[in-house]
Deep mutational scan, measured.
Amino acid sequence: MKKYKITVYDEKTGEKHTIEIEMSEEELEELAKKLAEKHNVKVRIEKV
């Protein structure tokens, strides 16, 4: 498992949230996809 920083940005409201999380790359990609689809936000992932 690796550490990642996830930034979620909502273009409508301008809200931006960043968290650090430790998980596998596959789980992370699935999480990012679900966030983007369900909440209509942009998701950026960076390795820490």
Rank of each mutant, 00 (worst) to 15 (best):
K47Q: 15
Y9H: 04
K3N: 05
M1L: 13
K16E: 15
N40W: 05
K38N: 15
K3Y: 06
V41D: 06
L28E: 03
H39L: 10
Y9N: 01
M23H: 01
E46R: 04
E30P: 03
T7Q: 03
R44N: 09
S24Y: 14
E11V: 07
E25S: 08
I6K: 00
E15D: 07
S24T: 13
L35E: 01
K34T: 13
Y9R: 03
L35I: 06
E46F: 00
G14D: 04
T18Y: 09
I45M: 03
E22I: 12
K2Y: 13
Y4V: 08
G14V: 00
E46C: 08
L31F: 13
E20S: 05
E37D: 09
V41W: 07
H39W: 01
E25F: 08
K2A: 15
I19L: 07
E29M: 13
K34M: 11
V48R: 04
I19R: 03
K47W: 06
V48C: 05
K34C: 09
E27K: 07
I6E: 00
K2W: 13
E22A: 07
Y9I: 12
G14K: 05
V41Y: 04
V48L: 06
K5M: 10
L35P: 00
I45K: 01
M23V: 13
A32S: 10
Y9S: 04
K12L: 15
I6W: 00
K34H: 15
K38W: 07
L35K: 01
Y4L: 03
V48G: 04
E22K: 04
E25V: 09
H17W: 14
E15Y: 10
E26Q: 11
E20Y: 15
I21D: 01
K5P: 02
V43C: 04
I19W: 15
K42C: 12
D10P: 00
Y9C: 07
S24P: 08
A32D: 03
K5T: 09
I19H: 04
E26W: 12
T13K: 03
R44H: 15
E27F: 07
N40T: 07
E27Q: 14
N40P: 04
E22P: 02
I19Y: 14
V41M: 12
E27V: 05
T7S: 05
E27L: 09
K34Y: 10
H17C: 13
Y9E: 06
A36P: 02
H39N: 08
K2L: 13
E11I: 07
E25D: 12
T7A: 02
D10L: 03
E46N: 04
L35F: 08
K33C: 10
K42R: 13
T13A: 03
E46D: 08
Y4P: 01
E30Q: 13
H39P: 15
E27Y: 05
I45H: 02
Y4G: 03
E26Y: 11
E20T: 12
I45Y: 03
K47V: 15
T18Q: 05
V43P: 03
T18W: 05
